[in-house]
């Protein structure tokens, strides 16, 4: 399984994360322990500066086996369940949110805590889903990317966790 995992030398991926299938993790990304990334139906390509927190689940359930491409600067919080078709950049997936299959998340979207986005199709840029009833609105500014938090984590993690070895990759 691990042989199909490609980790950029600058990414920090804890050994205790549960990664199955063909997964590529880009530069400066951090994957917390107990995060679950499953390339079930197809590969998953994760871009740069993404933060995937513990108990978050990212799964590729694309029926046609297309890769789930995740852009840069995304923040997947604790317990989020993301099974989208593809994900752009600078998105925030809140705690325990659910993103269903066949949803295309564009850029700078913000899915709130315990919200769900299940309708197939595009989620327009800067859409914000919030509240008990999954209300939507369009924000005026991008959500804050997790860059500064990533810096702190990249310094702290090596002292507490064993990390997955970097693989020399051309991506």
């Amino acid at each position: 399984m691990d042989a199909e995992l490609q980790v950029h030398p600058r990414a920090v991926v804890c050994n205790e994360s549960i990664i199955t299938g063909s997964v590529t993790i880009g530069a400066d990304s951090v994957v917390h322990p107990k995060a679950i990334i499953r390339a079930t139906k197809g590969p998953i390509v994760i871009g740069e500066r993404n933060l995937i927190e513990e108990t978050a689940l990212i799964e590729n359930t694309n029926e046609d086996g297309a890769p789930l491409v995740i852009g840069d600067d995304n923040y997947v919080e604790i317990g989020a369940v993301v099974r989208a078709r593809s994900i752009g950049s600078r998105n925030v997936f809140g705690i325990q949110c659910v993103v269903g299959a066949e949803v295309i998340v564009t850029d700078a979207c913000s899915i709130g805590v315990r919200c769900s986005v299940l309708k197939r199709g595009d989620l327009a840029p800067r859409t914000c889903v919030y509240g008990e009833h999954n209300q939507r609105r369009t924000a005026a500014i991008d959500p804050e990317p997790p860059t500064s938090l990533l810096e702190v984590l990249r310094k702290v993690f090596p002292s507490y966790h064993h990390l997955k070895k970097a693989t020399v990759s051309s991506a």
Partner: peptide, 10 residues
């Protein structure tokens, strides 16, 4: 964590 102008602190 909290974000400051100089970066984030836990």
């Amino acid at each position: 964590h909290r974000k400051f102008s100089k970066g984030a602190t836990m």
